[in-house]
């Protein structure tokens, strides 16, 4: 009788390895994508900066990529983006935070079961639809009591704000749910009301998660394209911060809207306007990537706080 054979099966081992490397390749594709994004943006942006200096781009106060005399100062676009970001933050941050508190601390299990999916719908509606809503419903409605331009930052900000509410509320709620119940009990045991428990125990204990949700939502607002391209207009102007009403009532242009404007025009060949797309895109990418990174790092901190 021969001994049992426990030796390796060469074919089986090779096949196992092959699959392992195949799957690994799929995972590495995500890093490849990041590299490709950076290279694509850099190649044309570097070309662009050979003609327009980086200083001129970053400090110029006029943006006119196609109409003579052309100018490529990105500040007007950044200021327009800021207007939308601040405006939508004013809508989404307080509403999203209150929503998270309601869902985490007040709502019954049953009510939460239908409110949460309903909120997720807000993030699922295509942005082009939101943009259309802002243009044809929100602006005319607000125009009845505000001196609004047809294209304005206000309607776009409101719509962007509504779209990012679920982003704030779901991440904040996760952080609040992670707060141990023993802390709530301690507070109730001292005779605190639900309001006090929510505001003085739960929110402070969840603050890094809340912060993380805020940054992520702002980053989404900065990168939002179709709503602002449709409803906020195409007027690159350096906004006047001393006139906050004028900021929102009139047309502006964000970085993303400027890219759409160039993109929808006939881009012929490799002109400056075409290359400026990549310079603006690079600026946008750097800003949002940094914000997402910060948000992710802060979030991973709160995940470790209460284990």
């Amino acid at each position: 009788m021969s001994q049992p054979d426990f030796s390796h099966d060469g074919i089986r081992t090779a096949r196992g390895k092959a699959f392992r490397y195949l799957f690994m390749l799929c995972a590495l594709l995500s890093i490849l994508t990041t590299v490709a994004i950076i290279l694509t943006l850099l190649v044309d942006a570097v070309d662009f900066f050979a003609e327009i200096s980086l200083v001129e781009f970053l400090t110029g106060t006029r943006w006119s990529p196609t109409n003579e005399p052309v100018a490529f100062g990105v500040l007007p676009l950044i200021s327009g983006t800021l207007v939308i970001t601040v405006g939508s933050a004013l809508v989404a941050l307080p509403i999203g935070l209150l929503t998270a508190i309601y869902l985490s601390e007040y709502a019954s299990e049953r009510r939460r079961a239908y409110l949460k999916p309903a909120l997720e719908v807000l993030a699922g509606v295509p942005t082009v639809v939101y943009g259309y809503f802002a243009l044809v419903y929100v602006t005319p409605a607000l125009d009845t009591f505000l001196p609004l331009s047809t294209f304005n930052a206000l309607s776009a900000s409101i719509m962007v704000g509504i779209m990012i509410i679920p982003m704030v509320s779901s991440i904040s709620e996760d952080a609040m749910s992670a707060v141990p119940d023993s802390l709530r009990q301690a507070s109730y045991g001292l005779g605190a009301t639900k309001f006090t428990v929510s505001t003085s125990v739960v929110v402070p204990a969840a603050v890094s998660g809340i912060f993380s949700s805020f940054i992520l939502a702002l980053s989404r607002a900065i990168g939002e394209t179709m709503i602002v391209a449709i409803a906020a207009g195409q007027t690159p102007r350096l906004v006047d911060v001393t006139d906050p009403a004028g900021l929102f009532l009139n047309s502006i242009q964000t970085m993303t809207a400027a890219m759409v404007q160039i993109g929808t025009g006939d881009i012929v060949g490799q002109g400056e306007a075409y290359k400026s797309l990549f310079a603006v895109g690079l600026t946008l990418f750097v800003i949002t990537f940094a914000m997402n990174l910060v948000s992710e790092l802060v979030a991973s901190r709160y995940r470790e706080e209460y284990r």
Binding site: L183, L190, G191
Partner: peptide, 25 residues
């Protein structure tokens, strides 16, 4: 007053932990 099985101080300073009940009440 109530003291629980597992120590459950708030993630606040020692001072704020003790003062919490005073503030709440």
């Amino acid at each position: 007053g109530m003291v629980f099985q597992k120590p459950n101080p708030f993630p606040k300073s020692i001072r704020d932990n003790v003062a919490y009940g005073l503030r709440v009440q």
